[in-house]
Amino acid sequence: MTTTHPAVDLDRLRDRARELRRAVLEMIAAAGSGHPGGSLSAADIVAALFFHELRHDPHRPDWPDRDRFILSKGHAAPVLYAALAACGYFDAGLLRTLRRLGSPLQGHPSVRDLPPVEASTGSLGQGLSVGVGEALAGRLDGRDYRVFVMLGDGECDEGQVWEAAMSAAHYGLINLVAIVDANGFQLDGPTDEIMDLGRLEEKWTAFGWDAVTIDGHDMAQVVRALAVPRPDWGASRAAGGAARGAVAGGAMSGAAAEAAGGAARPRAIIARTVKGKGVSFMEGNNEFHGRAPTAEELQRALAELAAGGAAR
């Protein structure tokens, strides 16, 4: 399925991820508050999306056929803002206004303040539902865009996530991809201790998704997992048509459509990651879930990132 991207330059994507990490740290340090840990764990996936997998146009943030990316774990807003700036949605100088009065770069993403942001998030648990709505609209309109939603592993405590998961499978949303940034920590500590998620991949599978677990820092694995084919609604509608009559409304259950031919399940990617990835004293140190680095910590972190770049 990677045929649409014959020549993926993984090293270039790794460099992009490193630039995102640098921007994240500088931005949060300048703001004096924010969430470095979950921004850093997500950086490789966000880089692969924005610089490789997403079909998007910074000059047309409202392009109806754009692929959508929803950051459901909205506290990782800095990594999203860094990616949008690097793509040219706005001037990188704006990143220094993060969390300041009057800035469009709100503490958590706000679609009203910053239109290239796809959904207003920050109350955990909501983004996947919005993604289901966007994916449903794509199906209704016969468009071939895809919707990618990134969630935290702690966020998966929220019941709404599983309501959304159930509905995506029920409506056969093959244009929807959920990515869980499984960094093993939530706010108060390790996810195992706060609220054990159990076997996460099996949960998504049980909810009717095509679930895979990957190393979320291995760029080759990330790129491969994200390469979800564009939907061909004409074909799947024809295939699902017979099965559909039994279900009220516009429902085409994944199982029904699959039986009629075609992989009809939405894709879930459980990305095993390291919280604070890329900075030794932040990795696995949940103190940096929601605290800004000091000026001295920032210098050390940036030096490490620069050195790490050479080592790779």
């Binding site: 109806p64 679609v111 796809e118 959904a119 648990g125 909501q126 983004g127 996947l128 539902s129 919005v130 993604g131 289901v132 709505g133 966007e134 994916a135 449903l136 609209a137 794509g138 309109d141 019941g159 709404q160 309501e163 959304a164 159930m166 509905s167």
Partner: peptide
Amino acid sequence: AEANMVGVAAGLARCG
């Protein structure tokens, strides 16, 4: 599943 229903509506509205 009302919470999800409201969020799904938001996504649909975002797409016109």
